[in-house]
Simulated scan of single mutants.
Amino acid sequence: MLISLSNIAKSYTTPEGQVEVLKDIDLSVTSGQSVALTGESGSGKSTLLHLAGGLDRPDRGRILMNDRDITALDELGRAEYRRTEVGLIFQQFNLIPSLDVAANVAFHAKLAGRFDAAWQRELIGQLGLDALTHRYPEQLSGGQQQRVAIARTLAATPPLVLADEPTGNLDESTGDAVLDLMLSLSRTAGCALLLVTHSMRLADKLDRKVLLRNGKIVA
């Protein structure tokens, strides 16, 4: 078992009062496995992803990563966890404007102490970024930036990749191709994948599907 979430609950304060986003969540992902988190908007998918990535703490429950309780970590510990054990792919891309494509792709791998020039070249080639390595983020289309973000995450070969609608900015055919490639590359790197998607068609490409409804896992 790579990561295990047990009895997880999370609420947020709104002007209308407390809103319980997640309720009694139990979920486990094994090494190398791909899992799709599905459900309607507001069902708690992104919140669950943020908790697994150490971006936030649950109100209740435990998250074990390789038998280490990440819910007990302080902010510095969670930052180290994000740097070394998880890769995050969000629709915002979060590329560094002052770095070109090659440097952006290498950034996380170097921070994690796992930079591999040959693996970076393979990722750049497979994701069709060869001609773009000296461009800066502002010189790229949204789809190109998304592929750079995927390459940057996989370059560090993290044990766990967390992706929130990673093909949401791409047209259907390009999104399918990029997801297929991302699944192939993550398997090559030995990464487990926990992916949020609204599309059951895309979810069917992964090893498992988990359905959230009103903050609970129902299937």
Rank of each mutant, 00 (worst) to 15 (best):
R201Q: 12
S98G: 12
S6N: 09
D59T: 05
K205L: 07
G128Q: 11
A151V: 06
V178I: 05
L55S: 01
A131V: 15
E20M: 15
L185M: 14
A109E: 06
T174V: 03
L95Y: 00
L99K: 06
L22V: 09
L154G: 01
Q91V: 11
L123G: 06
Q91D: 12
I25K: 08
D207N: 07
N104S: 12
T197W: 10
E75C: 01
Q120N: 07
F93Y: 15
G168R: 13
A118G: 13
G128A: 13
T133A: 14
Q92E: 15
L127T: 10
M200N: 14
G142F: 08
A155E: 08
P58R: 11
L37Y: 04
L154P: 07
L73C: 04
A52G: 01
R187A: 00
L179H: 05
T14Y: 03
L140F: 06
R213P: 13
F93D: 09
L170M: 09
G175C: 03
A117C: 13
S173E: 15
G39R: 04
D207S: 03
T188D: 08
G17Y: 08
S43K: 07
G190A: 05
T38N: 15
G44E: 03
N94I: 14
I217D: 01
E172G: 13
A109R: 02
A192T: 01
Q145A: 12
L206D: 02
E122H: 15
I70N: 03
A9S: 15
L73H: 04
I96T: 13
T157M: 14
S199T: 07
G168S: 12
V19I: 10
V101T: 07
E85F: 07
R62M: 12
V21E: 02
L181D: 05
K216I: 15
A112F: 00
A106D: 11
G113F: 00
A106L: 09
H134Y: 14
K23F: 09
A109I: 04
L99V: 12
S31T: 10
L64K: 00
P97S: 03
A102T: 12
D176T: 11
D176Y: 09
D74F: 02
V178Q: 03
L95Q: 06
S141A: 05
T153V: 05
Q18K: 10
G61N: 06
L73Y: 00
S28N: 12
R213W: 11
R201G: 08
M1L: 09
A149L: 11
E75M: 01
E122T: 15
R62Y: 12
F107G: 10
G42Q: 07
K216E: 15
Q120Y: 05
I8F: 04
V21Q: 00
L170Y: 02
D130S: 15
A163P: 05
E122V: 15
S11D: 06
